[in-house]
Structures are given as C-alpha cells and as structure tokens.
Design a protein around this nucleic acid. Structure first.
Length: 845
RNA sequence: GCCCCUGUGGUGGAAUGGUAGACGCGUCCGACUCAAAAUCGGAUGGAGAGAUCCGUGCCAGUUCGAGUCUGGCCAGGGGCACCA
C-alpha cells in the first residue's frame, strides 16, 4: 500500500442496506414465480403474532430461513419464502379493553411496524403473498374449509365442560387459569357445560401416529412428544357384574394380570359412584372431597390415594370371587371407562391403595414359573415375566397371556380387545371477538344450519364495545340477528369464534396460492407443497404442528389436496438468551433488574451507568421483559447494520441450541463486516499468478459451506468463512487470490446480503442475489499432501507430512525412522502395526 | 415416577472410532500513533526450565486406539404424568 492511497473506505450499512432493500423490492427479486420451470423449494418460518415489535428470537428464526432461501435460489431453485401474520388472538382484545383501541386497528398498526422492521433486516421474502389471518380474504376462506369439513362429518357440536370466568363472562383456556382463578379477573373459575364446536382429530389418531415414523427429517424429540400426546394404548375393555344387579365396564392394558385383581375402583364422577352416593352422606362427602383435589403436578405428587368402599361387590369373570368396589380419587373419569380393575401386585397406584386399605396383594407375574410365592419388595412389579397363580394362564409369557384373556372374553362375550387414545377431539369454540366467526346459524325450526357458501365471508362487525365484560359478538345489537337460510324465520348467528390455532393450521397452503374465490388452487399446492424446510420454536412441538398435520390430512380426506404431511423437514431453533443484571432491593430483599442499556459491562464485572456502582451479573436466561435482559433489534440494526446482526444470529452456537447475546459478540460481527469490506476492495481482476493452496482452500470452503447450509449448520459455515478470510488475507496478490475473494463474496451473500451486493456492484453487472453458487473443481477438494499421526501404543508421538496415497509400507518405514518414535519404543519389540492410509500409523508393543 | 436431550479451555463451541480444543469472543504481549480509536502481528487447556506428563462430568468396559461405542452413576435442561 502506498502513502498516497486514500483511507480505506468503510462499509456504511445505514446507506447501503436501504439501497439494496429498495433494489430487491423494485426488481421483485424474491417474488416466487408460479409458472417457473425450475425445481421448487418452499422455505417457511413460523409466522409471527403481531405483538407490535420484532423480537430478537424472530430475527434468529428468520435469518436462518433467509440464508437457506437465498442459498436455494443461488442453487437454481424457484424459491417460495413468504411471510404473514397470525393476527387473531387475545392480546388485541386486551389492548382494546385497556386502551380503548379497536383490536383491528391495533393489530394492523402492529403489522405495519413489524413489517418495516423485517424489511430493514433485508429478508428475501415474497411480500406479494403477505397475508394476515384477521382479514376477511383469509378467514372467509377458512370458514369455507370449515364448512367443507362439517359436510364431511369432521366437525360436530357437543356439550363440554369449560373453564368459565363468571366476572369476565368468558371461557378461559387452561393456561389462563392460575390457581383456580381467572388470570384477569381473579375470580374463582367455574366448570360450566357449554355447547362447543369440535374437530374430529381423533378420527386421525392412528394415521397421525403412523405418519410420524415417516417424518425422518423431523427432530426425534418432536416426534416423541407428539407420540406421547396421541398416546395409543392397547388393552381390553370388559364387564364386571355387580352385586346390585348392574354392571361396570373397566379398561386395562394388562388383561394378563386379571387373576391378580383384588378390587375394582371407579372415579368419583362415575355412575356407580353416583348410585352409591344416593342416600349415603359419607359417600357424598367423599365424592365432594375428590372434586376439590387440585390437578397441578405438585399436588398430584403428594396426593394420598384415598378410597371409599361402596359396599357393592364385583364378580370376577374367571374365579367368581366377589371383589369390593371402591370410589377412588386416583381414577380419572376422562380416561378409558372411568373405572379400573386394580391389580396391586403389578401396578404401583393399586399397590399404594391396597397397602393403605389392607386389601390383598397377589402375585400373578414372576421372573420364572417357580417364584409362585415370592414376596414383593415394598413396591409393585410392573415388568414382564411369566404368569403364575393364574389358572389357565400359568406358564404363559405376558403378551401370550394378554391375547389368551382377550380371546376368552370375546368368546364368552364379557369383554373385547380395545385401543384407547389419550388424544381428545379438538374443541375450537372461543367466546371471543377477535377470531374467525364460526359460520353457522341457530334456527329454532331447523336447528344448526351452515351459512351458505355464497354468503361467506361472515365478517366481524367493526362497531363493538369492550367496556363491559363478555363476548362483544354476543352483545352486539344487530350482528347476530339473521334469517335462517333454510326456512327464513328469524334466527341467531353463532357468536363463538374459532381457536386461533385453526388459522395457523392451513396458512402454508394459502401462501402457495391465494385465489379470490377459493381457499387455494390444488394445482399450485401440488407444485409447492410440502414445505421443504419449516423452521420455528420448540414451543409449538405439539399444538400447532399436530393441528397443521391434522388439517393437511383432513383436507386430503375430503379431496382438497393430495399430500399427507405439510412439512417435509422441521427444524426447531434455540432461544436467544442474555445474562441478567441485578441488585438486591434493600427494602424487601427482592432482586431489581437492570437492562443492558443501563449497564456498562467490562470483561469481569458490570456497573450501573446511573451511579457507577457495581451490579450483580446473573445467569444467562431466555430474554424476557420482566428480567429486563432484552435487546431491541432495531437499536442493533441502527448501530451496526442488518448484516452484523444477521451474522451474529448465525455465529457460534449451533442453531438448535440457545444463543447467548453479548455486546462484545455483536461488535465482533460488525468488525468482521468491515474486515470483509476491506478485503473485497482488494479484488483485482487483472492480477496474475497461481496459488494452488489457496485454490484448494477456496473450493473446499465453497463446498463445505454449501453442505453446512443444507444441514442448517450455520455456525460451522461461519467458522469456515472466517478461515477462508484469514487465508486470503495472508496470501500475496495473484489471480487465485482474486478468484478466492470473488468466491468468498458470493458464498457470504446469503448471510450478509447487503455487504455482498455493495461489493458485487463494484465489480460485476447484476445482483449477487441472482448469481449462481460458485462451481467447484472436484480435483481441488482433495489435498495432495496429508499429515499422518504416528502413535506408539495409541499415544501420539509424532506426525508425518507425506503425499496423499503413500503406501502403507512406506508410511511404516517413515514412522519407524522418527526419533520420537524410537525414544518412545525404547527398543521394545513391536508386536503389531496398525496403518490407516493417509491417517495414522500405530505401533503396538 | 417415566421418557428425551446436554455435559469439552476464561467463554460460545469444532472434531466420518484415528493429531482434542478448528473458528469466534475475551485476555496478554508487540507494531502503528504525540495519544486514543481503528487496524495489523504474535501468544493463549493445566503442570513443568525442559524432555515430557495430565486433560472432553464420574466409574467401569469394548478396541491397536474412545470426546465419539456399551453399561452404571452424577449434574443441568426439557417433555409427559394418578393415562389403568
């Protein structure tokens, strides 16, 4: 560099970012072409709820998807990478109640703000397909699909118990009930029976479960969680005849242990219990006690097994023994038949109960057939073995005995094999305003009547009042009053709205195709779906991801689409975390939290800017407003530019793990942006000379970064880019060096698109976003020299640098010649030599 | 209670059963500068003057060779849960 040369320029993100974002917009660079002949790739991140601000977690999520989408474009795919808004939900109504703004205007303002934030980050999104679930163009089509599912028998109404807040006059989700009280009103929540709309997800239990085994590009963890949630259990349902002349059906997964049954237990809500309680004050008291019991994990942990002997007995189907029938607090009315046969020897709960009430504990399964009288070691034995003390079952294996009992029960007509699911049908009714109106009309003459499709969408009224509690739709003076579409008499609209999870169960279809007159065009769905890569948070492992799978299968069953699964590959990214800064409040001993902006952090300590006194540095935890450990993406972008924050999101931590945010880290990223800028300025198209080692490094990096991006191993791709950068900086000018700079610029483009465009524009025509991924020479991917480890007894003693492919015998000879090896051998006799060509030589003595 | 994941320097993390700690951050030393910032060069697991020795949560095992595979513990995180 000569003295006359100008100061090296800085990359100015404040200017360059906006310039290139404008160019991409103007040229519609990232608009997906439905008629393209290229192979398709649909990259999708879970769409956000428009809370008002983009969170740093969103930035991480969308950056990952963006790198993949941009990379796929460079690889010659027609990429669909859309964005929209999961825009219905409670927070909008809360804002309406607290601040008097309309949920619609609040939501739309939030969308505008967040869209601007996303644009500022330079995401390669097809904004022409933007959708918001709160707009009639979207939810009207959802109503249409809901009617189709109704026509197919997959939607029904039934009475169901719900959490009812008597003050706010609304149904609450389970998550909104805290210690038995409404989270807003603080009122004691009541169980109320209401007519609710349900979707028949249980019809799909078997295929939703079976389908998991084909989702080999989904995290094991998510598949397991869904499997547990669906909860298939195989067993037998059978009948006990009772001493009062009635009978009771029980369900068991261990019919093999039937000879070990020493009592029968029913739930407090079970008809047998109700019968026993008639005119029996003690029984009534016990039932009331059972209903009081909480259902939190902690309460269940400590809850004692309690029972009430009804005096009724049940006749054992094999032995004819009369077993006592108890009302028991540990039997659930919702599962199975709400009644069980209790086998204390082989079920821990039954064991605890039998111990407390002095009931027989019988052994019917043992490790081997001789252990007939082996005592129990203070707990039930739930494991497998051989049947004993079980009449005709003696000597059978558990599985064999299960089959034998079921066969006998079916032959004799007192029971049958049965599969029971944990999965319940999906209740979708919400007594809320800000959701999709359920398109039905209640007519006194005709009953429940679907809204005719040509009257869709059923649009939410704008003039609603949030001043008083309850559902504004139900209170609205005119909205619900309509004539019955069938008979014409005055009737009433359904005033419940759909659970917002319905909105997110099919949005990925609407992105692929959004005609005005139908939910989607099946031909377009066929082209784009399934989503090739779906990325989002693990918190949706069950609800959203299960519902979306269900809708896809339901829509297939009614002939709307022809795919089974919506998301071919799923990736769940980790959270962004940050340390916390606290001081103990002397008044009450509670911690006071400070935000990163209020604190000056040095390498070992932190102090509060306000008083220059130290603060405690706490654990690195998920960013949350209450802990004040949040950083605002806008501030970061304003200070360091979009590329720096994108780079940070990709660096260091593997994407599935938590990413600790640090001020030093983002500054390092900003420095690297400038370092690349200076390096790109070195590009000299006229340079001559070959640098074989750098050519190798270049192609190896291009190849490895491609593989890393495809595997979403962004942290590894980042590390390789650092390595190549270092190698180029150290290399003297040559044609190879210029070629390497050019390749580096192109492969970094998906991650730092603004910097890359700015540098690319200085040397070439067109956009780097449209440039193809650099080709590699396969011959350059393999090194011609390798370093071979030399070990003695498995311990490293020396290394050899040899030509790749050096013969084993030569390697052995070279290794043996090493001083270090000779010293380590100390003249001992070599018994064996392990030679792995191009890798190592190991002398075993 | 059951199921799953994770455990590697000061720190985030690399490592098809084959040279543990790539790469980043931080720290230290140096260059440039009147000075600072920026930038550049070097060092950086521990012990030792060195040769070397010890090191991937702990204990065993398999193997010529284990961060990686197997068994058993410990710790942290997550999911499910009186599911019969």
């Amino acid at each position: 560099m000569t003295q006359e040369q100008a100061e090296p320029s800085r990359f100015e993100p404040a200017i360059a970012d906006l310039r290139w974002q404008q160019v991409w917009d103007d040229q519609k660079t990232f608009c997906a072409n439905d008629t393209s002949a290229k192979p398709r790739s649909y990259v999708l991140e879970m769409f956000p709820y428009p809370s008002g601000r983009i969170h740093i977690g969103h930035v991480r999520n969308y950056t990952m998807g963006d790198v993949l989408a941009r990379y796929k474009r460079m690889r010659g795919f027609e990429v669909l990478h859309p964005m929209g808004w999961d825009a219905f939900g409670m927070p909008a109504e809360n804002a309406a109640m607290e601040r008097g703004v309309h949920p619609g205007s609040w939501t739309r303002q939030n969308i505008a703000n967040m869209k601007a934030q996303l644009k500022r980050l330079g995401f390669a999104l097809d904004w022409s397909r933007e959708l918001a679930t709160c707009e009639p163009e979207y939810y009207g089509q959802e109503q249409s699909l809901f009617l189709d599912l109704y026509a197919a028998g997959l939607v029904y109404r039934k009475e169901s118990a719900v959490n009812w807040d008597p003050v706010d006059q609304t149904v609450l989700a389970n998550e909104q009930v805290i210690d038995g009280r409404g989270w807003r009103s603080g009122a004691l929540v009541e169980k109320r029976k209401l007519s609710q709309w349900f979707l028949k997800i249980t019809d799909f239990a078997e295929e939703l479960l079976e389908g998991l085994s084909h989702l080999d590009k989904w995290p094991e963890k998510v598949r397991t969680m869904q499997e547990n949630w669906i909860g298939k259990s195989q067993g037998m349902q059978f009948r006990f005849d009772l001493s009062d002349g009635e009978s009771v059906e029980v369900y068991t997964t261990r019919p093999d242990t039937i000879f070990g049954a020493s009592f029968v237990a029913v739930a407090a809500e079970h008809p047998v219990a109700q019968r026993a309680a008639q005119g029996n004050a003690a029984a009534q008291e016990f039932i009331a006690l059972c209903k009081q019991g909480g259902t939190t994990a902690a309460e269940l942990e400590t809850a004692e097994k309690l029972g009430f002997d009804t005096g009724i007995t049940a006749r054992h189907p094999f032995t004819g023994a009369e077993l006592p029938v108890y009302i028991a607090n540990f039997v659930l009315i919702e599962y199975g038949t709400g009644a069980i046969m209790a086998v204390p020897g082989h079920d821990q709960r039954d064991f605890d109960f039998a111990t407390k009430y002095g009931l027989p504990i019988l052994r019917v399964v043992a490790a081997n057939a001789d252990d007939v009288t082996k005592p129990f070691a203070g707990e039930a034995e739930a494991g497998y073995g051989v049947l004993v003390n079980s009449g005709l079952l003696n000597g059978m294996e558990v599985s064999e005995a299960k089959a034998a009992v079921i066969e006998r029960a079916e032959t004799e007509g007192w029971g049958q094999g049965k599969i029971v699911w944990r999965l319940r049908d999906w209740g979708v009714s919400r007594q809320r305003y800000w959701g999709t109106p359920i398109p039905f009309i209640h007519c006194e003459v005709c009953g429940v009547v679907p809204v005719p499709k040509k009257q869709l969408p059923v649009v939410l009224p704008e003039d609603v009042d949030f001043a008083t509690p309850g559902n504004p739709l139900a209170r609205h003076p005119t909205w619900k009053h309509v004539d019955c579409p069938q008979c014409g008499v005055p009737a009433r609209r359904e005033t419940d709205t759909l659970d917002t999870f319905v909105d997110s169960s099919w949005y990925f279809l609407r992105f692929a195709s959004q005609p005005d007159d139908r939910p989607f065009d099946p031909a377009a769905i066929r082209q784009w779906l399934p989503v090739e890569q779906y990325i989002g948070g693990i918190e949706h492992a069950i609800l959203h991801l299960l519902y979306a799978r269900f809708w896809t299968r339901a829509l297939k069953r009614i002939g709307k689409i022809d795919i089974d699964e919506p998301f071919a590959s799923l990736f769940t990214q980790g959270m962004v975390t940050h340390e916390t800064y606290t001081r103990v409040d002397p008044a009450n001993g509670q911690p006071i939290y400070f935000s990163p902006g209020e604190v000056e952090r040095s390498s070992a300590s932190a102090m509060l800017l306000a008083d220059s006194e130290p603060v405690d540095i706490g654990r690195v935890i998920k960013m949350s407003k209450s802990k004040k450990n949040v950083v605002d993406p806008d501030e970061i972008v304003a200070k360091h530019g979009a590329d720096a924050i994108r780079w940070f999101m990709l660096s260091d931590s593997p994407p599935e793990r938590d990413l600790p945010w640090s001020e030093a880290g983002i500054e390092g990223c900003a420095r690297f942006v400038q370092r690349l800028w200076r390096l790109f300025a070195n590009y000299d198209a006229a340079a001559v000379g070959e640098d074989k080692a750098l050519d190798r490094k270049r192609d190896q990096t291009v190849h490895a970064v491609a593989q890393d991006i495809e595997a979403l191993g962004f942290n590894k791709a980042v590390a390789r880019i650092y390595e190549l950068t270092g190698a180029i900086e150290k290399a003297p000018p040559s044609a190879s060096r210029s070629a390497a700079i050019r390749a580096l610029l192109v492969i970094v483009a998906p991650m730092m698109p603004h910097l890359a465009e700015e540098a690319f524009a200085g040397t070439e025509e067109g956009l780097v976003a449209d440039a193809p991924w650099p080709a590699v020479d396969p011959a350059l991917l393999v090194d011609d020299e390798v370093t071979v480890a030399v070990q003695v007894k498995g311990k490293l003693r020396d290394t050899l640098t040899v030509a790749k492919g050096t013969a084993s015998a030569d390697l052995e000879r070279l290794a043996l010649a090493s001083d270090k090896v000779q010293r380590a051998l100390e003249g001992a006799q070599v018994k064996k030599v392990i030679v792995v060509p191009d890798r190592l030589v190991n002398f075993v003595v």
